[in-house]
């Protein structure tokens, strides 16, 4: 049984115009000059989102850039905590976004496979059986013995994708269609994703390609400026979205 429930979730975060201040600057500004150093701008990334998904649900998330789609995925994955409201997710999560982050550059491909697999909750025993499968899927061969810092971006993606998709997730979170490596690998990756989309209990897919959404999803939400503008069966929501976009374009 997998389940996702978001109740009145809002997410506000502060973005700093300057990356980080030093304690020295902070003290001088606030204590000596009595001035606030804060250059923070608060961003309302999500506002009052309600969502409830059960086994078998395939949710497509559509909307303009900056509508809060990716933020929603990160919140579902547990990376962004909600500012208000509650998030409840049951089931083993597999997130297919930001996957090329977090390799240990000095370690070999093999080692990185195990680090990432452990991060996804594998144990040395359960990994042993999967290691060869993962390695074979990357098609990196003897490059796996080389430290990851020598890899090209495409090789990194191959490695990341092969590991990320090696577990059988109950909740699958995907951001856009990943551009993975060369043409041949692209096809293989698409096939693997289809397979995962079929076997996962719940899927949430963020994509701009409305055809994919219509094909893969049975439900959809349309987001705009962090709010849910419409939710329901895929075709209804997608049609409403297209109508709104053409209306704006005409006006």
């Amino acid at each position: 049984m997998a389940k996702i429930a978001l109740t009145d979730v809002s997410l506000t975060f502060t973005v700093h115009q300057r990356k980080r201040v030093t304690l020295k600057e902070y003290l001088i500004q606030t204590v000596v000059h009595r001035r606030s150093i804060s250059t923070a701008v608060s961003v309302h990334a999500l506002a009052g989102v309600n969502l409830s998904l059960r086994d078998g649900d395939r949710l497509g998330v559509i909307g303009h850039n900056g509508a809060g789609k990716s933020t929603l995925l990160k919140l579902l994955a547990g990376i962004y905590p909600p500012t208000v409201g509650t998030r409840e997710v049951e089931g083993k999560i597999c997130s297919l976004f930001d996957i090329s982050l977090g390799f240990e550059p000095e370690a070999t491909g093999w080692d990185n496979i195990s680090y990432r697999a452990f991060l996804q909750g594998e144990s040395p025993a359960s990994l042993r059986g999967k290691m060869d499968g993962i390695a074979a899927f990357t098609e990196l061969g003897s490059f796996l013995d080389v430290p990851v810092r020598h890899y090209s971006a495409g090789m990194m993606m191959r490695l990341a994708f092969s590991i990320a998709t090696a577990i059988e997730p109950e909740v699958l979170l995907i951001d856009e269609v990943l551009a993975v490596g060369d043409m041949a690998f692209q096809e293989k990756a698409q096939a693997r994703m289809k397979e995962m989309m079929g076997s996962a209990r719940i899927m949430v897919l963020v994509a701009h390609d409305l055809k994919t959404i219509r094909k893969m999803c049975n439900r959809a939400i349309w987001m705009q400026q962090g709010r849910v503008m419409g939710a329901g069966p895929t075709d209804e929501v997608v049609d409403a979205y297209i109508a709104s976009v053409t209306r704006t374009a005409a006006a």
């Binding site: 240990e104 000095e106 680090y115 452990f118």
Partner: peptide
Amino acid sequence: WRFRHFLLALVRLDLRL
């Protein structure tokens, strides 16, 4: 504790490096 394998693998890596 559940993610001890992840933790220990990275500690081993740090020491090796």
